[in-house]
């Protein structure tokens, strides 16, 4: 039983680490703030959920589990709020979202 829990939590931790890394890669690769927000979203939702799930299996049934769960709930409430604040602030400062069509148009104009 102990071993089984260890293996299961190892799998969850590995999957969580994977999604956190994907979010970080998205933060680097995606073209502008609005798109990068989606990358950060992967880290904030599934990455954090799997990671904390893995830690919860490690701690067993104790107050630590409850605290980890509280962290997770806090993430799920706070992350969309700060995302919205960031997106709204960026848009109201006049930042234009990057888009594929406009980029193609710009390149054409630059060439002509």
């Amino acid at each position: 039983m102990e071993v089984l829990l260890d293996i299961l939590s190892g799998i969850l931790l590995a999957a969580g680490s994977f999604f956190i890394l994907v979010g970080a890669i998205g933060l680097i690769r995606l073209p502008d703030v609005f798109a990068r927000m989606h990358g950060a979203g992967v880290t904030d939702t599934l990455g954090a959920a799997l990671f904390i799930g893995g830690l919860m299996l490690q701690s067993g049934l104790s107050l630590i589990t409850v605290k980890l769960l509280l962290i997770l709930v806090l993430f799920f409430f706070a992350s969309p709020t700060s995302s919205y604040a960031l997106a709204n602030a960026a848009l109201s400062q006049g930042l234009k979202p990057w888009s594929r069509d406009e980029k193609a148009k710009d390149e054409k104009e630059g060439a002509s």
């Binding site: 933060l27 990068r36 960031l86």
Partner: peptide, 27 residues
């Protein structure tokens, strides 16, 4: 992952990129 977030915070062309990176770093 934290290193990548830091890179974005240093590169980030706009202020909001940096704020997003720092927020992600905090997570």
């Amino acid at each position: 992952a934290m290193l990548l977030a830091l890179v974005r915070a240093l590169l980030g062309p706009t202020l909001f990129d940096r704020v997003l990176a720092v927020n992600s770093f905090g997570t």
